[in-house]
Amino acid sequence: MNHRLNRFSILFMLAGGLVLLFVIAPLVGLFLQTSGVSIVKTLHDHEVTHSILLTLTTAMGATLIFSLGIIPLAWLMAHHQFRGKRIIHGLIDLPVVIPHTAAGIALLSVFSDQSLLGSGASFFGLSFVGTSAGIVIAMAFVSLPFLFNAARDSFESIDKRLEHAAMNLGASQMQTFFRVSLPLAKNGIISGMIMMFARGMSEFGAVVIIAYYPMITPVMIFDRFASFGLEASRPIALIFIVIALAVFVLIRLITRKSFAVR
């Protein structure tokens, strides 16, 4: 291929460059307009640190708990043809297309203490409205398509003869799943889990409906902005972005080291 720049390439580079600038400029602006003093002050605000910790733990909780159901569902969808399969695909992708505040309202109608499920759960001392459990539910609802789609694609990409070989060699379906399918699909699944975690962590719309308090960081940024203005919310936004990026990079590094195919 000819790598010399022509008019066509330059035009596309300009168009692409504008998009990159559009993504980077607000982040740079945020960094430049936030003073060091306000960052230090915010870091000493216990409400903020507690909120960041809550956001990270609930997003992690949502990812880990729901992966126990999402991964088996993804395997089923990758391995079986059945009537209604497309409908299930559509249902799983639904959270991506509906407004997240609407998703929050929908969740509230199922998990509020007055609903059947909510009242059933409250019988066992579990409440979803205004609790960490509610935050986990809301985060999981909007972010699970990321893990599901990544896991299904990974399972689909496995050569079926490897799974047949495992069973021919005496492995049950369960053993084949844990010894062959899961290890071979792990890279895609881990990527999906990271995406689900990242998406859950940044969720605002659904969470704000079901659990304004305890306050996760995206809700706190909105709350401080609405109550005290840009100056009060900007350092929290900056700290949260840095921590989110650091966690994201850290997880990537850890999983790459631990799960690299040698």
Partner: peptide, 20 residues
Amino acid sequence: LPMHQRRVGLVFQSLALFPH
């Protein structure tokens, strides 16, 4: 019988060695 209980050993044309 389920595949894993048959005790017939199949060597696949693609060999199907587990790459991991």
